[in-house]
Design a protein around this nucleic acid. Sequence first.
RNA 1: GGGCCCGUGGUGUAGCGGUUAACAUGCAGCCCUGUCAAGGCUGAGAUCGCGGGUUCGAACCCCGUCGGGCCCGCCA
Length: 586
Amino acid sequence: MFRSHTCGELRPEHVGQEVTLAGWVHRRRDHGELIFIDLRDRYGITQVVFDSITAATHQVAEQSRSEYVLQVRGCVRPRPAEAVNPQLATGAVELEALDAQILNAARTTPIYIAQEGGEDEALRLKYRYLDLRRERMQRNLILRHRVIKFMRDFLDQEDFLEIETPILIKSTPEGARDYLVPSRVHPGKFYALPQSPQQLKQMLMVAGYDKYFQIARCFRDEDLRSDRQPEFTQLDMEMSFVEQEDVLVLLERLFTALCQTVVPQKRLLTPFRRLSYAEALERYGSDKPDLRYELELIKLDDLLANTPFQVFRGALDAGGQVKGLRIPGCGGYSRKQLDELVELAKAGGARGLAWAALPAAGGEVRSSFGKNLGAGEMEALVGRMQAQAGDLLLIVADQAAVVAASLDKLRREFATRLNLADPNTLHFSWVLDFPMLEWNEDEARWDARHHPFTAPLDADLHLLASDPGVVRAKAYDLVLNGYEVGGGSIRIHRRDVQQQVFDLLNISRETAQAQFGHMLEAFEYGAPPHGGIAGGIDRIVMLLADESTIREIMAFPKTQQASDLMTAAPSSVDERQLKELHIALR
RNA sequence: GGGCCCGUGGUGUAGCGGUUAACAUGCAGCCCUGUCAAGGCUGAGAUCGCGGGUUCGAACCCCGUCGGGCCCGCCA
């Protein structure tokens, strides 16, 4: 045994006991004859005092440097009243070192452990094992552990079974790009890593495991974002004999209890608000709106029905929309600041951004487009947007999707600038009634928006043949503070409806047989009605931890170029390995 | 595939056409018995990511390249 206690454990009740601690030198304060060392492990920090009276022990402290690994035997004693450190959990006591040894020395570390630095993230990733020693990362990984532990315990209580599914599976061309694994035994053939265990969990429903879950690693070979890594973890669930409402209610109970347990200090809004996909896009321009603040998009089409302004006119004539945002108190923006906003709108796909600034003192409206408007139109816009002196009005005219994307960008930007989103609030919501299909312009065909097994709303079933674009699905997303943290659907379990959907998606019988034959066959042997959901654990933990990238809550994340800077993966491999796998590089 | 931003001692920054490349912190040595971001003194440490170019002269300007970040496309 290297230690009798951890560095976070000692309290006044331990006074007088002889204990042994082991840990890293967090900080050293050398006063000559007296040396203080803060000894750290993942449980905390304990101050160890080395007095020159114990000469050999004192010498160990003299030689010690930051991040040396020490073992110290000593006596727990109370600190003098004026030397108590209320910042430390162990701050009422200290360890009087009687005997100590250096278990291992350490080079000067490239990053400081004791201080949260602003270093280049690449450096942190290269030396991740040092970065992970920091309190922040430990706190995040501990939170992550608690989240996953809670999910397992909760679902166990609800009679769910955690069942593992394979990592080496069959590739299907649907969805994201697959990570492929070559087969040695089958020349020229490949496994794929799962984008999600979708088909497998549906097979488990056919098999009668009516409440399944898994903490499932998923892989998608797509470009990265701050909330997207090539491998990530989902809470994957599937249930039989359930309707959409059952799934929503269960998940709401799960996440409510989860948040109340692991982040009780946060304000959780319940019940979760529900809004349709159409409403979300209409009011917020996003299917994952941050509802902690309002700042809604305002529809202006009807006021401009006869406008002479070509930009608005053109958009409306082309079947598009004109919508705006009222930004309170930003009417004083400079030309340069406004130009930045125009660039932001363009990043969202808009060709431009019309703005109107109302002076704080009242008077003439400054705007990029006022002179092009017809009589009374500016007044009508100002009225509709309920603009007040000092406000800034931002207006985009384009196709609905472009208007939504660009105003969503602006809406989120101003939430940040104006501090509208309370970081301490968790605002979950359900986005429902997604369109089932999506028109693929490039390929001129319908694509499944969720996946091809998603069931249509019963009320829309009859439209499948006549007007597929308006058919809504029994699909639902769980949204938290502007992030999609979960999504799922009720699946089709009727063979005739499935065939109808395949026909719509232009999936031939042969293709369906080749790609999904095993599922279709399985469904002929008594498939129960079923549905499920998958939650993005990384994103949820990120939000609960108040972090802005999921890299901060993963032990060993990858860079935007999908490389691991610590191990230098991916890497070249031996010619012999390639040969065994029947692979020739081009 | 595209747009924008970043790269200077171990670390974080300043310098933005001529400087002995500055500051903080860390590091090393010495002094110091109540510190907890300990303090004091002394010192070492950077060919400015890399490669070209412009210039009498480049950390600084230009081109390319590598690495990192944010976003668009992509992510059923």
